[in-house]
């Protein structure tokens, strides 16, 4: 178990945990977990038992992109998944 990092540290870190991403994005934990499981939010994991780490700027950009597609184009998560996986 590692110590909780201060917000200033998280805001400048290259990689963040899911809990830290909740703090930075304001998106609920279960939603981030669901996006991750659906392959919408790429993560980095050294080993299967290790903590998943998200590239801070990349993850925040992806969340903003999802939010935009939801609000501006009125897409459902399923449709967003199809679109983003197609683009990737």
């Amino acid at each position: 178990m590692s110590r909780r990092r201060k917000l200033e540290v998280i805001q400048n870190a290259e990689y963040v945990t899911i809990g830290e991403l909740v703090q930075l994005s304001g998106v609920r934990y279960s939603t981030l977990k669901f996006y991750t499981e659906e392959g919408l939010l790429p993560f980095y994991q050294m080993d299967q038992k290790m903590v998943r780490r998200y590239h801070r700027t990349g993850a925040l950009q992806r969340l903003a992109q999802i939010q935009k597609l939801k609000q501006e184009q009125g897409l459902t998560i399923k449709e967003i998944k199809e679109k983003l996986l197609e683009d990737d």
Partner: peptide, 11 residues
């Protein structure tokens, strides 16, 4: 949770 407890379109 991701669909109904967040803003946006629903399936």
């Amino acid at each position: 949770r991701a669909e109904l407890l967040e803003e946006g379109s629903v399936d």
